[in-house]
Design a protein around this nucleic acid. Structure first.
Length: 449
RNA sequence: GUGGCUAUGGUGUAACGGCAGCACAGGAGCUUGUGGAGCUCUUAGCAUGGGUUCAACUCCCAUUAGCCACCCCA
């Protein structure tokens, strides 16, 4: 007996002509936010699985920190002068008067947790990984969102160059395993002292060329001279070539450290390019800095970094670890990687095939089908269903689309006889089997495939 | 944050200062027992708010969002 309620359409039509009720306006999504729809999920899942497997294999442990932190953590950690902190943070005061921010990146939080939980008393280095949403109030563009996910690893408490190399390796390898051809761009920016010296030399050089600089570049000269190096202004390309190079200003320790990092990358077969102009936007970096970019003939595709990382030996101390705590890490932008994955492996989004489809006819058939479906599922057979449909025809159509090799059909007659029909969807043949042996019969058929 | 381009059903698109079409997708059906084809019917739209006009989806302004180039970044 069908108990379906009468169609609301009909009752509306017969209802008294009430004044047209205004439908509530649909609410928009907040700017820069996005839904991850089912069609995209297979990519996320694939990337997540690769990331998790690699991180765990390499001894990294999962960590999850609060989305909300004291604003001071990022001001101190990421750098007051950085654009991220200066104009891109979601900051607000709570009712209790706390100054808090949605995290714009994860490294500062991980180090905070490291200190907070006394991880400096654990065997060093402490290796942690995360896969979490970050928030930056940036102008949205493709591959750039206000909420975005990062997969990253942090290795805290050791300054050995092999760890820097491991970071670049893991970033590269994760992408590679996800099907994204990529290359590491790498540089060393030395210690804060050697970098300060270099910065002075750079400023001195560009001051002499000041008249040739664009407005943006003049600002950089004052605010963040290292940024002059990755300026896109055409005139800069020539000026850069003449400019002092950071390698010439590195202290001996940083230089040796960097050489070792490169040797390890050679050994591991990681494709990398030395990029003397690569500097990164966060204040905490020291020595090794790197980015990973996809390999593509299309320059627009290649230019967007999929991830980045490096060494940040001073950060933990700056955040109060109380003793020198060298560390390094990297993060990949999940949305950006997924975009590349869609190009590299377009068929990943296809629906997962079902082995069997359970079709039913009549209320008794439906009830029986409900149970049979669960029986199949419990025995590990991937079954499909459309229990809410009445017409067998519609169900067979769905069965066909689901890719099921067999349909189990249960109607009134079968319920009475204690049987089910098993239909071979390719051959179009079908047989009647004992209802208690459905799982057995299906398994037998699957075994033959 | 600065500058530019764009906005029509769920998706992709068409047209026009005068009733907004098409394709795909969705739903129902083509004798309440069988899918892949076909057919019928059907749901669903001018981003929002103002203005000009007899009349605006169309022209103008603002807002919002997306995209692009910057800034910066994953």
């Amino acid at each position: 007996m069908s108990m379906k309620p009468p169609s609301p359409k009909k009752s509306d039509v017969t209802a008294a002509p009430a004044p047209a009720k205004k439908a509530p306006a649909p609410l928009p999504i907040v700017r820069g936010m996005r839904d991850i729809l089912p069609a995209e999920w297979p990519y996320w899942r694939t990337l997540y699985r690769e990331a998790e497997r690699l991180a765990e294999d390499y001894g990294y442990e999962r960590i999850e920190t609060p989305v909300l932190e004291e604003t001071a953590l990022f001001v101190r950690g990421v750098g007051k002068q950085t654009d991220i902190v200066e104009k891109e943070m979601y900051s607000f005061d709570t009712a209790g008067g706390d100054h808090v921010s949605l995290r714009p990146e994860e490294t500062a939080s991980v180090i905070r947790a490291y200190i907070h939980h006394g991880m400096l008393n654990r065997p060093q280095p402490v290796k942690l990984w995360y896969w979490s949403p970050m928030f930056r109030h940036d102008r949205p563009q493709s591959g750039r969102y206000r909420e975005f996910w990062q997969f990253g690893c942090e290795c805290v408490g050791d300054d050995d160059p092999v760890l820097d190399a491991q970071m670049a390796f893991l970033a590269w390898k994760t992408l590679k395993n996800a099907g994204v051809d990529n290359v590491v761009q790498i540089n060393s920016i030395g210690t804060p002292e050697s970098r300060a010296n270099y910065k002075n030399a750079l400023v001195a050089y560009f001051r002499t060329k000041r008249h040739k600089l664009s407005e943006d570049d003049k600002k950089r000269l004052v605010k963040n001279p290292l940024r002059l190096l990755d300026s896109k202004e055409p005139e800069m390309q020539e000026l850069k070539a003449e400019a002092p190079q950071i390698v010439d200003w590195l202290d001996e320790d940083s230089k040796a450290h960097f050489m070792h990092v490169l040797e390890y990358l050679d050994e591991a077969g990681v494709p990398y390019q030395l990029d003397p102009y690569l500097v990164r936007g966060l204040d905490y970096y020291t020595k090794t800095v790197f980015e990973v970019a996809s390999v593509s003939e299309d320059p627009d595709v290649a230019k967007l970094a999929l991830g980045g990382g490096g060494r940040y030996d001073g950060l933990a101390e700056l955040l109060g670890s109380g003793r020198p705590t060298p560390a390094c890490g990297f993060a990949l932008g999940v949305e950006r990687v997924v975009t590349r994955m869609k190009e590299a492996v377009p068929d990943l989004g296809a629906l997962e095939k079902r082995d069997v489809f359970v079709a039913q006819l009549g209320e008794q058939g439906r009830r029986k089908a409900f149970a049979v479906f669960e029986e199949l599922r419990q025995s590990g057979i991937r079954a499909g269903e459309a229990l809410s449909k009445d017409a067998i025809k519609a169900q067979m159509e769905i069965a066909n689309k689901s890719g099921a090799k067999w349909a189990v059909i249960i109607g009134q007659k079968e319920v009475l006889d204690g049987t089910v029909i098993i239909r071979d969807m390719d051959a179009g043949t079908q047989e009647i089997v004992d209802a208690r042996k459905v799982v057995l019969e299906i398994k037998k058929k699957m075994g033959k495939e």
